[in-house]
């Protein structure tokens, strides 16, 4: 008698605003996740100011700067990709997404070499040189590896997310009128970028 009745406010309709709202809420949770680490960093930095400063000289500011530039550029390309799709140019949109993924890869490769040099100097927890450090410097490196490691994980997840979106643009599921998934991946990518914007000064720049 009523087989095709559908409510006007059905949860099965495509709802870009709901999807966007969900993404923003998720971003809050990510901020709070890193927020816990920022809090720990703040407490230990204030307790071990000199040791943190001394330890931070082991990092290369120029490499960090280069990676910051790479990530900022990738945030630009992902934003441009959204504009391109909104204007209906899916080819350009996909190209810009690949550029974003390329930037993510560059970031990770640079990070790999940065971490490797720390390993060579025995600065990873448990290694000889690390064990001889005073507690304050140990805490610095604990937090350095933990926070940049977790951030690196987010770079990987963000990159995979963008690849999924590339596939969906190709298959036409994400298109000019249904681009919320692309925008969500962009939002996520900006978050990854934003976290780095805070990590960079905390570990490389503060004197």
């Amino acid at each position: 008698m009523n087989h095709h009745f559908t409510l006007p406010n059905s949860g099965h309709h495509y709802d870009a605003k709901a999807s966007k709202m969900g993404m923003w809420l998720f971003l809050y949770t990510e901020l709070l996740l890193f927020g816990g680490l920022f809090l720990v960093y703040m407490v230990y930095r204030s307790l071990n100011q000199d040791a943190f400063l001394l330890a931070s000289f082991n990092l290369n500011v120029w490499i960090g700067t280069a990676n910051t530039v790479v990530l900022l550029t990738s945030s630009m390309t992902v934003a441009m990709s959204i504009s391109a799709l909104q204007k209906g140019d899916s080819k350009k949109s996909i190209l810009l997404l690949w550029l974003t993924i390329l930037a993510a890869l560059i970031f990770l490769v640079v990070k790999y070499f940065e971490w490797s040099s720390k390993f060579e100097h025995g600065l990873f927890p448990g290694m000889d040189h690390f064990n001889q450090l005073p507690n304050g410097e140990k805490l610095y490196f604990n937090l350095y590896f933990f926070m940049t490691g977790l951030h690196g994980l987010h770079v990987i997840v963000g990159g995979i997310f963008i690849m999924v979106v590339v596939a969906k643009i190709k298959s036409g599921k994400v298109n000019k009128s249904r681009y919320q998934l692309l925008e969500n991946s962009g939002l996520y990518w900006h978050l990854v970028d934003l976290i780095w914007i805070y990590l960079f000064p905390l570990f490389y720049l503060i004197h």
């Binding site: 809420l25 809050y28 949770t29 990510e30 816990g36």
Partner: peptide, 10 residues
């Protein structure tokens, strides 16, 4: 949404 992530990271 706003409290659980803190225990997650802890």
């Amino acid at each position: 949404v706003l409290a659980t992530p803190v225990i997650g990271i802890t």
